[in-house]
Design a protein around this nucleic acid. Structure first.
Length: 686
DNA sequence: GAGCACTGC
């Protein structure tokens, strides 16, 4: 056991301490929420003394004189709240050439940041949110005709760009948190670069200012991408976090949970009881066993520890527990990377970092996602460390050595290198690009990956070859790209309309493009309850049919206002928030279908037309049962084998032929959201 | 027999 070396530096040079502060090479990847602002006084002095306000004139000069610029601002510099205001006050919401009033848009990777920043800025300016300053994301639009400054998610601006690639509504676009390298912010930057190039050609100079706000490490890359754009750095105000490392590399890979718990128990002896702990683990399974183990050990030793799990699929009630005040108990929260940026927990003074994260990787040749556990990047490790107290000095215990830290990637692998590219490429063809060759990427995926995506788009008739050179969206591709859905999944709409079951297909697509609706609360009891719930809605025709029955259940409860919807959903193991989202997504897809004047027909209780539509829409997802392996083989590629996911209605059924909506590799390769089909519907696939 | 986190036209 190596944990004794972490005893606050007493073990001499076996302990390495470093400071995670100031102008270190990595800044914190900040995500705001309302709670974080609670402790910050909203007075004029505070704002006037923000680092960015001290260099206000210089910032403005750089922005005014450069069509594109990159601003590096560490946490606490006030860049996200102040720079947009500085621009607004300088009249940069007006078109520089014509003087026409336009808008400034600031994009954020997360909704919670977009709304919190808008509210904060509105209150600094003494205006109501939604008037001069507003925010916008899917299902929420708090802006009006008078709004000049919009905080939006990057997905919103991307959607705008697809309708109007010249972004004529805006005089200025600020891409915040660009270093996070999300799929939509990368895509946006690529579009902005094309736009910038096109503008030069037509001589419409300076019609759109572009500001990229990023952490230091990625600034050079953005600068080069935009033709050596000017970089402007603003100092931040950061607090000290003491870092502790293991003295030797950790070689016991399977021991992550017990190491974390041991660390908690040891630090419990050293830290004042009011200092809460936050432990980062890669996923659900590790978190549940850590919570159990902590409770068990705490009971054995008579300690005053109380452990909570925190991950996204936890019910709202369980998530809320972490905020309960514990006067005489120490809170220990075991969390996924949801606690890195999305959720801020007050009172945390000690962070324990396993150094691992679970993430999706796309397998391009077989076109499915794989869930893998990997080392965090140095930037993520710093972000995790920074969660130990915002105003007080915190401590972070890293369950890896400094050598291991130094070997970690500086930044996480950009999402574009880990994702299915069909959607991104379709976006580019939609805005009028003709060749993938001429796309310039911040980090280019390999040619193979691009070709694989192009092949799939051709396979499903979403793109067509142009007579001269290159490709364009097909008629279908044009329609599909207007839906907020994976292009291949979206094809179900066309088949369903033909087979007169569009109403059902819309519901199914709403489920398929939302998070799973079954709650995932930890504990044996809850696990049994979730299984029971899944059985209750189980359908012989498969999981898509189950979605329809869950949907009608939800609708009937929603109608009947006398019953307590929340309690009932919980009783049936359903997550009310996620089901609510499905409802909203359904409505959105429905509206789009109505606009396209598709025939809105229902097949009622007979699901045969729907199953046929599924078979016609995704013929490449046909799997046939092979008794020899007690599993399935992909009909279009017989060497690819998979199992039906255990949460499926058809798990263990040994159905002869199924079609999946998605495939995912975790411990094994699983077909998910499967539908029972008849192989005779697929004569063309042997 | 099993579930990283975000985001959208």
């Amino acid at each position: 056991m190596r944990l004794e070396v972490m005893n606050g530096g007493k073990a001499g040079n076996s302990v390495t301490t470093a400071s995670a502060s100031n102008s270190s090479n990595i800044s914190k990847l900040n995500g705001f929420n309302n709670k974080q602002f609670d402790g910050i006084k909203l007075d004029k002095d505070f704002i006037a003394n923000l680092p960015v306000r001290l260099v206000e004139d210089e910032v403005l000069k750089v922005i005014k004189e450069n069509e594109v610029c990159i601003i590096i601002g560490e946490t606490g510099s006030g860049k996200s709240t102040q720079i947009p205001q500085i621009c607004l006050d300088a009249g940069l919401h007006k078109c520089p050439t014509t003087g026409v009033e336009k808008k400034i848009i600031v994009t954020q990777p997360r909704r919670i940041a977009a709304s919190a920043l808008a509210k904060r800025v509105a209150s600094e300016r003494n205006v109501k949110t939604g008037t001069e300053v507003g925010f916008k994301f899917r299902f929420e639009n708090v802006t009006s005709n008078e709004t000049k400054l919009i905080y939006a998610t990057d997905g919103i601006l991307l959607a705008d760009a697809m309708k109007d690639p010249f972004l004529t509504d805006y005089s200025m676009v600020i891409i915040d948190e660009a270093h996070e390298r999300g799929l939509s912010s990368d895509t946006l930057l690529m579009i902005l670069k094309i736009l910038n190039r096109k503008k030069e050609k037509i001589g419409n100079e300076l019609s759109l200012r572009i500001v990229i706000m990023s952490a230091t490490v990625e600034a050079e890359k953005f600068s080069k991408f935009f033709n050596n754009a000017k970089i402007f750095a603003i100092e931040g105000r950061t607090y000290e976090t003491k870092l502790f490392y293991l003295s030797r590399p950790n070689l016991q890979e399977g021991n992550m949970v017990s190491m974390c718990v041991d660390c908690v128990l040891q630090l419990d002896k050293e830290e004042p009881v009011e200092h809460d702990f936050l432990v980062f683990l890669p996923g659900f399974e590790e978190i549940n066993s850590a919570v159990k183990l902590t409770a068990q050990r705490s009971k054995e030793k008579g300690l005053t520890l109380i452990a909570f799990p925190l991950y996204a699929s936890l019910s709202l009630a369980r998530q809320a527990q972490i905020y309960q005040k514990q006067s005489k108990l120490r809170k220990v929260i075991y969390a996924t990377n949801i606690a890195e940026t999305s959720i801020t927990i007050p009172g945390i003074r000690v962070v324990i970092d396993s150094g691992k994260v679970r993430q999706k990787e796309f397998v391009h040749d077989l076109k499915y996602d794989k869930l893998v556990t990997v080392n965090v990047s140095q930037a993520q490790a710093m972000q995790r460390a920074g969660r130990a107290g915002r105003e007080n000095a915190g401590k972070c215990y890293r369950l890896y050595s400094l050598e291991e830290y130094n070997k970690m990637l500086k930044m996480p692998v950009p999402e574009v290198l880990r994702s299915n590219l069909t959607s991104v490429i379709l976006t580019f063809l939609k805005i009028g690009m003709k060749q993938t060759k001429s796309m310039s990427w911040l980090d280019s995926p390999s040619k193979d990956k691009i070709m694989a995506a192009m092949r799939q788009l051709k396979e499903y008739d979403l793109i067509t070859k142009l007579p001269d050179k290159g490709y364009a969206c097909s008629e279908r591709g044009n329609i599909v790209s207007e839906f907020p859905i994976d292009p291949v999944l979206c094809l179900l709409l066309f088949k369903a309309e033909k087979n007169r079951c569009l109403v059902e297909a819309i519901t199914i697509l709403a489920f398929l493009s939302s998070d799973p609706v079954f709650t995932n609360d930890s504990g044996d009891l809850e696990d049994k309850k979730a299984d029971e719930a899944r059985r209750k809605f189980s359908c012989n025709e498969g999981d898509l049919a189950r979605m329809l029955s869950i949907y009608s259940f939800y609708k009937s409860f929603k109608k009947n206002k006398n019953t307590s919807l929340k309690g009932d959903l919980h009783r049936y193991g359903l997550n009310e928030v996620r089901l609510g989202t499905v409802f909203k997504v359904r409505k959105q897809i429905n509206t789009l279908c109505l606009n396209l004047q598709l025939k809105m027909e229902s097949c009622g209780q007979d699901l045969l037309p729907l199953r046929k539509s599924v078979a016609e829409a995704w013929p490449y997802n046909l799997c046939l049962f092979d008794p020899e392996i007690n599993g399935y083989r992909l009909a279009s590629d017989k060497k690819t084998i998979c199992k039906v996911h255990p949460t499926s209605c058809l798990a263990g059924v040994r159905a002869h032929a199924i079609v999946f909506s998605s495939m995912m590799e975790t411990t094994e390769r699983y077909a998910k959201d499967v539908t029972l089909v008849d192989p005779s519907w697929f004569k063309h696939i042997s």
